[in-house]
């Protein structure tokens, strides 16, 4: 069997359109983990994230003959599809919040004073801080800062005004900044 590992995503995508199943496998191996990480940022649950990405790959296989011929960036195409599917998933389950919820307490996410701080630890803690944002605020922050969607894209996807996106971003930063400042202070590293 030909070695597919040296083929580019574009070449694999072309193979896939012609029905080469091994091309699907190779694209899956290359992108599955990364796409699941995108989906989990939206839906929060690992099993649901995997379901979403599974459906995506099943759908591109079943509709392979109708895939766009000219995909400049296969990775970008898959990421966009994952984001859209994640948002649809939330929408279908009425899990896109319409109001802002209560602002979280910054100090509730702090560790013990004097705890040794490490980069990995800090990373893990900011993950938890992001998870503490009110859900709508969290989604908007994730879409903007991590998934790099424009404010216009976000406002369209969530059916809210540009102004709301901006307000929620300000709110997210304020909370994360506060939280981080307190955390660094307590850990005594700045």
């Amino acid at each position: 069997m030909a070695d597919l590992s040296s083929r580019t995503d574009q070449e694999l995508f072309a193979d896939l359109r012609r029905g080469v199943e091994a091309a699907l496998d190779e694209l899956f191996r290359r992108h599955y983990a990364g796409l699941c990480q995108i989906a989990i940022r939206f839906v929060g649950d690992g099993g649901e994230a995997e379901d979403i990405v599974q459906e995506l790959f099943l759908s591109i296989w079943e509709k392979r003959e109708k895939l766009p011929e000219d995909v400049a960036g296969v990775g970008a195409y898959l990421r966009r599809a994952t984001r859209n599917r994640s948002l649809n998933f939330l929408r279908d389950r009425n899990r896109i919040p319409v109001d802002d919820g209560d602002p979280p307490e910054a100090h509730s996410s702090l560790g013990n004073p004097g705890e040794q701080i490490e980069a990995a630890e800090l990373r893990q803690r900011i993950d938890r801080a992001i998870d503490r944002l009110p859900e709508r605020c969290r989604l908007i922050f994730v879409m903007s800062r991590i998934e790099e969607m424009s404010h216009r894209e976000i406002s369209e996807a969530l059916d809210i005004s540009n102004k709301t996106v901006e307000n929620q971003m300000t709110r997210a930063y304020r909370f994360l900044r506060q939280w981080l400042a307190l955390y660094l202070l307590i850990s005594g590293i700045s």
Binding site: F28, C36, Q37, G46, E50, R123, D127, R145, L176
Partner: peptide, 20 residues
């Protein structure tokens, strides 16, 4: 904050082979 947040949930590592 942006820099720290970039890795949000990238600790999630699904089992690719069983997914496949």
């Amino acid at each position: 904050i942006d820099t720290l947040a970039k890795g949000y949930r990238s600790d999630f590592q699904p089992d690719v082979e069983s997914g496949l």
